[in-house]
């Protein structure tokens, strides 16, 4: 997409995200080991909450894929791992949605991701998206039932919180700035 030191246009970034989305189509449902486990039953009223979380996870996956080429080589391995974990989250959410016969919407062809043109811009973007996921999960989890669904979604939240800490470190910020994760960090 973009050579080293080159700037990426917004169109290029969005295009890459779209291509990445196509390339990864279906991976979210199959890549996660969690999807091989029987999923806890989800109340149908919780479907909308889970689908909103899935949309955010897919957006974050697209951002990682699109941003990867803009990152220094030393950071790419880590970010690829984060990407793989985000795919696992999509798999877990898809599994929960399907457990009540919910329909999983097709992955959008592209996402509005802004126009980061360098590593700092990519880190800021994924920081923002991971934080948005945390805030969403914190408001969603108390509304979910039964308990196993709450706990399953919380096990996703914890990993997104870890991602934010490690991204903050890369940005020269304190990794755990507060005693209570809120998604505003």
């Amino acid at each position: 997409m973009v050579g080293d030191g080159g700037g990426a246009s917004r169109r290029a970034l969005l295009g890459a995200a779209a291509v990445a989305g196509l390339a990864l189509s279906g991976c979210g449902a199959t890549a996660a080991p969690a999807s091989t486990r029987p999923a806890p039953a989800v109340a149908e009223r919780d479907l909308a909450l889970l689908l909103a979380a899935l949309e955010l996870e897919r957006r974050t996956v697209a951002a990682y894929v699109a941003g990867l080429p803009l990152l220094p080589r030393a950071l790419r391995g880590t970010v690829q791992q984060f990407l793989s974990e985000e795919l696992e989250h999509t798999g877990e959410l898809i599994s929960l949605v399907r457990s009540v016969g919910g329909r999983v919407p097709a992955r959008p062809n592209s996402f509005q991701l802004g126009h980061p043109s360098d590593a700092a811009g990519v880190l800021a973007l994924v920081h923002e998206l991971e934080s948005a996921q945390i805030a969403t999960y914190l408001s969603t989890i108390p509304q979910l039932s039964p308990g196993p669904v709450r706990a399953a979604v919380a096990s996703i939240l914890t990993v997104d919180a870890q991602h934010v800490s490690l991204i903050r470190l890369q940005q020269g910020q304190a990794p755990v700035p507060s005693a209570f994760v809120t998604g505003a960090e």
Partner: peptide, 20 residues
Amino acid sequence: PALVELSAQIMATGAQHDAV
């Protein structure tokens, strides 16, 4: 709900400590 949210917040902060 308030207890669930608090517990989830603490669990997430613990995971951040874990990472560091």
